[in-house]
Design a protein around this nucleic acid. Structure first.
Lengths: 194, 194
DNA sequence: CGTTCAGTTGACTAAGGTCAATTCCCGTGG
DNA sequence: CCACGGGAATTGACCTTAGTCAACTGAACG
């Protein structure tokens, strides 16, 4: 079952037999059910999560409102790097949207790997870079696009999201109200047939 | 003149005499005039910039429109870490808002410092973390606050910006049109006196 | 003194927010 | 297997506010 995560890492760095074994030795597997949490705010995110099956979202809770930051599906990684890097408690909640099988790679173990096999440092660096890029993209989306454009971009770029995520979370991710998302969809539908 | 940058770094890591000398040896100083550029899109940002005097902003140019990402004043650092970390050309333009004295710490030199004095790695890590935090904060501002609230937050948190940055760039930073910023200011002013 | 550009103002439009009501869908328990 | 309950999604009515385009003002600079 950890084969998938090995394959994922091999897309970033080449591993020899020995390195692959070292990695396998520290990977923890875990199952969580829909609506359960990988991480709750207040906890330190001292691991990176790889999704084997299922989907996750993370959100902030502010004044009782949820603000969804991102969705993740199988074969992808996520960690709250703000918490991971600084060791401070996270203010993110990472929730399973579907039943999940996930793998955990603890910071402690990854740092041991760095020492034994420095090639893993590149992996760590790429993870952080990707998180960076993700944030920048979301920033761009929010600054450059109107709510309607954001909806269309998401529909175009990640149609899978609409198959597997409830609309209210998508609205939250797009920074609009569910009612507005509903109207945007209706408007686009009606425009198309006129 | 590099004393200020030394002081800034010492807030993050303790330096002995030898380490301080090694650092001084690689710091480059530079002066740029208002409206000149530290970096133009297409160039690789292979250095971090420390501002001794003056102010900078960075912006993206998209369809002929400028989107201001952030402002920086004396005693602060900036780098496009997306470009810095990946070595790819930047799509940011870093422009002087006022005449500036800046210091450059090249990636090449910083990496040599890592080897000679591993303590500098912490400095590098903290720089990346701070950039991360900055992005997250901007994200939060854009998702959680209305244009008016963004204006008020900026006014409250960084009044200096309003003393030293033209309103049109502030509008761009807040992701609103200059006309709207003008009306927001008027509205707030009139509400206060009624 | 005139040119230029930042900033403001006006008129208008469109789109998203809010609150309330309704419908739809799905899972659970009887 | 059906009925019911509850949350998700939609719809309606109304309001507020930002965007757009155009005109005007004002200040800085040569």
């Amino acid at each position: 079952m950890p084969d998938r995560v090995i394959a994922s890492i091999k897309k970033i760095i080449a591993l020899n037999q020995q390195q692959e074994e070292a990695l396998r030795a520290v990977i923890k597997t875990k199952k969580i059910k829909r609506k359960e949490y990988v991480l709750r705010e207040g906890q330190v995110c001292n691991y990176a999560t790889f999704i084997v099956n299922g989907s996750l979202r993370y959100y902030y809770l502010i004044d009782g409102e949820e603000y969804t930051g991102q969705f993740f599906f199988e074969d992808s990684w996520y960690a709250d790097f703000e918490s991971y890097l600084t060791g401070k408690p996270s203010n993110e909640n990472i929730e399973a949207l579907e039943d999940c099988e996930i793998l955990l790679l603890y910071k402690h173990d990854l740092e041991s790997l760095y020492v034994q096999h420095p090639i893993f440092e590149k992996f760590g660096r790429v993870m952080v870079e990707n998180a960076f890029l993700g944030l920048k993209n979301k920033n761009k989306m929010l600054t450059l696009e109107s709510p309607e454009e954001r909806y269309l971009s998401l529909l175009n770029d990640r149609p899978l999201v609409f198959k597997r995520v409830p609309l209210k979370y998508i609205a939250s991710y797009l920074s609009i109200q569910p009612e507005s998302l509903s109207r945007i969809r209706k408007r686009l539908y009606m425009d198309r047939n006129s």
